[in-house]
Amino acid sequence: MSNVFDKYIKEKEFLVCVDSDGCAMDTMEIKHRECFAPEMIKTWNLTEKEEYILNLWYDLNLYTQTRGINRFKGLAETFKIISKEGVEIEDLENLLNWVETTNELSNNSLKRAIEKTDSKALKMTHEWSLNVNKSIEELPKGEEPFEGVKEGLESLSKIVDVAVVSSANGEALNDEWGRHDFIKYLQVLLGQEAGTKQYCIAELKKQGYDTEKILMVGDAPGDLQAAQNNDVRYYPILVGKERLSWDRLVNEAVPKLMNGTFDKEYQKKLITEFNDSLK
Rank of each mutant, 00 (worst) to 15 (best):
V188M: 11
F14D: 05
D6T: 10
T101P: 00
T211G: 04
I89H: 02
E242S: 05
K264V: 11
Q228V: 11
E85S: 08
W246N: 03
N108W: 11
D247N: 14
E137R: 15
D181V: 10
K73V: 06
K116W: 06
L173I: 11
E171L: 06
Q192V: 12
G142C: 12
A172R: 03
I136N: 05
A227Y: 00
W128G: 04
V188F: 03
V87N: 01
K197T: 00
D219C: 08
L105W: 07
D26Y: 01
K42L: 07
E51G: 08
Y185P: 01
L139T: 09
I30V: 15
V217W: 01
L54G: 00
C35N: 10
T261L: 05
L92G: 12
S129E: 02
W246P: 01
Q65V: 13
I159A: 04
E138V: 00
D263F: 08
N229D: 13
I159V: 15
V254E: 11
R71V: 10
W177S: 07
L249S: 07
N229S: 10
K197W: 01
N94W: 02
E34K: 15
G218P: 09
G170M: 05
S83A: 11
K206S: 11
L105N: 05
E48A: 14
T47F: 14
T78Q: 02
S109C: 08
Q228N: 13
V232R: 03
E212K: 12
T125K: 03
Q225N: 13
N103T: 15
T211W: 02
I237R: 05
C17D: 00
S245E: 07
E252M: 01
Q187R: 15
T101N: 12
N55V: 06
E203C: 07
N97P: 02
I9A: 10
Q228L: 13
V254N: 09
F182L: 14
A168G: 13
F146R: 03
I41G: 06
A226C: 05
G191T: 05
N230E: 02
E77K: 09
P38N: 02
K268D: 14
K120M: 06
K184Q: 14
I237H: 05
E93C: 04
D6C: 03
I53G: 07
T272A: 08
P140Y: 00
V217H: 03
S2A: 11
L62K: 00
D118V: 01
F72Y: 15
K123Q: 15
